[in-house]
């Protein structure tokens, strides 16, 4: 199973695209293992994500993909292997990553704008400098009208947009997203995907997106890594060569559905 992880490494598009010494990958995971007592959650996962790339980790619930993301976010410790971001080892939460969780986890007593500025306060950055940026983000996420509202006045989708703005406000290089749309209804979910791509198109952050939705992974990503059942390994890697910017209408196309079928087959072979 280590071999399939190695494939992901070799296919690093940054290494292919640029001549000369390649810059360190935005995220480089090698031989990662995670053990909870007797339970082996992750067994030897290796992957590399190039600068500006949008990569999804696809797998069913409980396959260890969220654990992997939390280790990359510095919120959980690996039992073995190495994780580096931009060439430096991950030892804990860091300034150059932004995280979006499954739940929006906004603070109910803070306005939307103040929630978005929370990382700025925590990191001791000047509010005056970042407030215009926070407002720009809210405008791009189309919730600027709610900047002064309290979270309970927002719909689920709007709350998650605010959470995405919060993850981007301190200008991280790497955005880690842990099933951010899984609590939303299907229609909102599609909209959020389009919105996220619009933001991504504008900021060109590296995104690692964990999901259990095949269509979502195929629609959003440059590359989808399919994770097998626990202990987690990467069993398949699919490059999604659909043109960008992507539109919801593209999900009707045969090219899109061919990717979806391939991903589904990879999952069924390993979980069926």
């Amino acid at each position: 199973m280590t071999g399939s992880g190695g494939t992901a490494l070799k296919n690093d598009p940054a290494a292919d695209a640029r001549p000369g010494p390649a810059p360190p990958p935005a995220l480089d995971i090698r031989d990662l293992r995670k053990q909870y007592g007797e339970l082996e959650a992750i067994r030897s996962v290796s992957l590399a994500v190039a600068d500006g790339e949008f990569v999804s980790l696809l797998g069913p619930s409980g396959c260890g993909k969220s654990t992997l993301l939390m280790i990359a976010a510095g919120l959980s410790r690996a039992s073995g292997g190495s994780v580096t971001i931009g060439g430096t080892a991950v030892t804990g939460p860091r300034r150059d990553t932004g995280v979006v969780f499954q739940a929006p986890v906004l603070l109910p007593w803070r306005s939307v704008l103040d929630n978005v500025l929370l990382p700025i306060e925590f990191q001791g950055l000047p509010r005056a400098t970042y407030e215009p940026r926070a407002r720009d983000l809210l405008r791009m996420a189309r919730i600027d009208a709610f900047a002064d509202a309290l979270p309970h006045q927002l719909s689920g989708g709007m709350k998650q947009r605010a959470a995405i703005c919060r993850a981007l406000v301190h200008e991280p290089k790497l955005l880690l997203m842990d099933e951010p749309f899984s609590a939303l209804d299907a229609i909102t979910r599609d909209e959020m995907g389009v919105e996220l791509l619009r933001l991504w198109q504008a900021f060109r952050k590296t995104v690692v997106f964990v999901t259990h939705s095949i269509r979502e992974a195929a629609f959003l990503s440059d590359r989808v890594l399919v994770m097998g059942r626990r202990p987690a390994t990467i069993v398949e890697e699919v490059a999604i060569d659909l043109p960008r910017p992507r539109q919801i209408a593209m999900t009707e196309d045969e090219a899109f559905n061919r990717h979806v079928r391939r991903l589904r087959r990879a999952i069924e072979e390993n979980h069926g």
Partner: peptide, 24 residues
Amino acid sequence: GDIHKMARAFMGSPAQIFWKIRLP
């Protein structure tokens, strides 16, 4: 737990977590 995870992810110090999260 999610709030604490979020606070740690965005690098809140224990003092900041107390004043900005635990107390309110």
